[in-house]
């Protein structure tokens, strides 16, 4: 027996290059992907950080100006509007999405008929491009074409729904379209969570005479805390990344009243030739994302151990 193992060992030692490659190949194949992620994300973020400290205009220049661009950013009225809009949009979007998502999930959890078809329909918007859905919503929200006109035609002559042309309210139209797009997805998350709740606990509560809303509120929803957590994560990253929807629906307007940081960055970097300022705004957005995902990853990793 021992000699057999020795023989195997000896042959393993003799094998030379081909087998060394055999042994290392599975380990090396990860490298291209890891390298891509490393360069693509961290390398270029570093470059953006560098540009944000220069006075680059139309073209990149490497005259170092320290944190001047960041100071200018916070003196920029339009940036302040965009940042405020992000807080408003993000908060409402996440809140309403969670609410609608939970309600839809609870609805589908009622042993409803044709659940599969309904789930697919609720999810449809998420599979479509924001550019196209934004265009459809632009039409529906246009006071001269969509809902307002329909309401007035139906005899409610004082009906007004012109948020999209109202600088104070245009940002809410973004919330409407974004909630419509993403709530089905939140529903899917919650539905999976609901199915994971131990039915015997629910049964026990039913036997004790708890009403259905009470069962959901006191027993089922608390079990879903991890789902809420990941939903908030994913939704907040959608909110910070929001770009196509704004471009398609309001174009940041009227004026710049519905600008979000991503469209601000785009406008300043590419159409206004303020690359340094644009880079500074990108860095701040990155900072916002990091502030959200670092605690998340931390808790994920800690949970695993």
């Amino acid at each position: 027996m021992a000699t057999a193992i020795d023989a195997v060992r000896a042959s393993a030692r003799d094998t030379g290059f081909r087998d060394t490659l055999q042994r290392w190949l599975p380990k090396l194949v990860l490298a291209p992907t890891a390298l891509c992620a490393l360069v693509f994300i961290y390398g270029y973020i570093g470059w953006t950080a560098l540009l944000s400290m220069t006075n680059s205009k139309m073209l990149p220049s490497y005259t170092f100006v320290g944190f001047d661009q960041y100071v200018r950013l916070f003196e920029n009225e339009r940036w302040l509007v965009a940042a405020k809009n992000l807080v408003l949009f993000g908060g409402l979007f996440i809140g309403v999405c969670l609410l609608v998502g939970v309600l839809l999930a609870v609805l589908l959890d009622q042993k409803i008929r044709s659940e599969g078809a309904l789930r697919a329909i609720y999810l449809y918007p998420m599979a479509l491009s924001f550019i196209v859905t934004g265009t459809a919503w632009k039409w529906i929200l246009d006071p001269g074409l969509g809902l307002q006109k329909l309401g007035q035609e139906l005899g409610w002559s004082s009906f007004r729904f012109d948020w999209i042309t109202d600088p104070d309210r245009a940002v809410y139209t973004l919330v409407i379209a974004a909630v419509w797009q993403s709530s089905g997805f939140v529903m899917a998350l919650f539905l999976a969570g609901l199915r994971g709740v131990d039915p015997s606990i629910v049964k026990a509560a039913q036997l004790d005479g708890a009403s259905l809303p009470r069962i959901y509120w006191r027993i089922v929803l608390p079990c879903l805390r991890p789902v809420v957590f990941s939903a908030v994560m994913i939704l907040s990253h959608i909110a910070i990344k929001s770009f196509d929807l704004v471009m398609a629906l309001t174009g940041g307007g009227p004026g710049y009243s519905s600008d979000l940081p991503a469209t601000f960055m785009y406008a300043h970097t590419f159409t206004r030739g303020q690359m340094g300022l644009g880079s500074a705004s990108a860095m701040l957005m990155l900072g916002a994302v990091l502030a959200i995902i670092v605690p998340y990853l931390y808790s994920e990793l800690r949970g695993k151990r």
Binding site: T33, A34, A37, F40, I41, G43, Y44, I45, W47, T48, L51, P60, M233, H237, I240, K241, F243, P261, A262, M265, Y266, T269, M275, G278, S279, S281, A282, M283, M285, L286, V289, I293, L297, E300, L301
Partner: peptide, 18 residues
């Protein structure tokens, strides 16, 4: 997890260099 975290980054962060 690290790879996944890169997906969370907003693309504007790397737009200008690219």
């Amino acid at each position: 997890l690290w790879m996944l975290s890169t997906k969370m980054m907003p693309p504007v962060g790397v737009l200008v260099p690219i």
